[in-house]
Design a protein around this nucleic acid. Structure first.
Lengths: 166, 166
DNA sequence: GGCGGACGGTTCGTAGGGCGAACCGTGAGG
DNA sequence: CCTCACGGTTCGCCCTACGAACCGTCCGCC
């Protein structure tokens, strides 16, 4: 009743509420392209390069049975493909199809645009400061690359031509 | 290939990836108390005060039909109650039960603890700076109070005793 | 060389989440 | 009064997530 309601917000509520905000953006942005947030996330991860199911599970924090379903549905929509792993008959490499690659790029761009707009009230220097601080948190906590930096990825994800990073 | 891979992260990826992180925390923290993230969120919102279904829908960004289900399940678990609205027979006030209030407090505390731990690598001054910047974003974008400040709420949400804030 | 265990993925059943459309009763304004 | 807006619920559909059970391949070890 004294030091509050003054507009100052604690670090934890600030993080949780901004998370809420970004979640909403992800959902809206996805809806615009007929993607669920999860499918959008999957596409974004695959923009970097193809991954195996287990790798994806680890990155996205999902049980493998959950992954099967997600990839199934996304595959059914023609956005993703299961390629056999050259050096392991059991394994599978999940990769973007041409269509998936295009949609991923659009979704990525739209999401970026929207998230950027959230920070419209901040000066350039403040945005940099924020990026630096959040970047530290992301790094410290080893958050998987669920969203690429604007320029990386395009090189490795370029095409279907038997690229086999790993 | 030149200015990247140097650990610096753009503002948008930083926001998205930290969001991913907080989402994971919410999920884990909830699991610990047998709550889904959505139910946890609902409890947190109701810590402040009871709300009508429509209000909740607006705050959480859910369609009313989605709300019905969420409240149903949470009610079935004995955490929440539908009180009749004194001045509108049609309407309903969703409020925490005693049990829900307790669980909400625990979930809130645990989540706070975990989110705080994410920022462990930051100095106190940096945390303040981060809180300030994120706070601006939250304010600018009028994010609903889906997570209270540490001390507010307890007063209004105190008890079942026919409190009727609006 | 073969055997057994670890590993990569899928299947199945269950439960939750989210939506739009249709519906119902109450409130409120002409 | 009568109508219409409003607060909520119901229904049917699909997506998400999990654990447990399962299957085939790979690999280390004797």
């Amino acid at each position: 009743m004294d030091k509050h309601e003054d507009g100052r917000i604690g670090i934890v509520p600030a993080l949780v509420r901004s998370t809420f905000l970004v979640n909403a953006v992800y959902a809206e942005s996805g809806r615009e392209y007929g993607l669920t947030p999860q499918q959008g996330q999957l596409l974004c991860v695959l923009m970097a390069q193809p991954y195996g199911m287990s790798e994806l599970g680890a990155m996205l924090g999902l049980a493998k049975s959950s992954l099967t379903g997600l990839v199934d549905r996304t595959e059914r929509n023609g956005l993703v493909r299961r390629d056999p792993d050259p050096r392991d008959t059991r394994a599978v490499r999940v990769a973007l199809t041409a269509r998936g690659s295009g949609l991923a790029a659009e979704f990525y761009a739209e999401t970026t645009r929207r998230v950027e707009k959230l920070t419209a009230g901040l000066a350039a220097a403040e945005r940099d400061a924020l990026a630096g601080l959040l970047g530290r948190i992301v790094l410290d906590n080893k958050v998987p690359v669920v969203f690429l930096e604007p320029d990386e990825g395009t090189l490795t994800a370029r095409e279907d031509e038997g690229r086999d990073i790993r």
